[in-house]
Simulated scan of single mutants.
Amino acid sequence: MNPQELRTFCLSFDDVVEDFPFGPETSVFKVAGKLFALSALDREPLTVNLKCDPEIAPQLRAQYPDIVPGWHMNKRHWNTVTADADLPDQLVRELIEDSYDLVVAGLPRAERLRLDRP
């Protein structure tokens, strides 16, 4: 996955905005004001921090060397995924969608319904 594909995919979900609270080099993708993906899109290798179910995160890290504990994040809930490595693009997309869904699941019910994700 390349940087433009990553950006386009993250922005394809409902109510997502790209923000730059840490400076122009770090894209922060938010849903309803809550972070679900963070990436320095111009860096190599291309990595993205994604929220992950804490029960699944260790399994993913054990199975894929390109998935590690989240850089500068809560290591229990966040993974750093090297998106332009040997991981299949479909897996990266699924991890991004899972991150989005986890964040949406934590929103108030009215917000979830507005986003069509009860």
Rank of each mutant, 00 (worst) to 15 (best):
V81T: 06
L95Y: 03
K75I: 11
L102Q: 12
P88A: 09
G70Q: 09
M73Y: 12
I56W: 06
R109F: 05
V92T: 01
D98R: 15
V103I: 15
S99V: 02
W78D: 05
V92H: 02
P88L: 11
L113W: 10
W71H: 15
T82L: 03
R93W: 08
A85Y: 01
D89L: 06
E97L: 06
V103F: 09
D98G: 05
P108T: 02
P58K: 02
N74T: 05
D84I: 13
R76S: 12
P58F: 02
A83W: 11
D66S: 13
G106S: 05
D86P: 00
A110N: 07
W78E: 04
G106R: 07
Y64C: 05
A83H: 07
H72V: 10
M73Q: 10
D84H: 12
P88F: 00
T82D: 00
N74V: 07
A85G: 15
V104W: 03
H72P: 02
E94T: 08
L102F: 06
L102M: 11
V68K: 13
M73N: 08
D86L: 08
Q63K: 15
I96Y: 08
G106L: 03
E97K: 14
R93Y: 10
Y64R: 01
E97D: 01
R109Y: 01
N74H: 05
Y100Q: 02
D98E: 14
A62D: 15
Y100D: 09
Q90M: 11
R112N: 03
V68Y: 02
K75T: 09
W78M: 07
V68M: 14
K75N: 11
V81G: 08
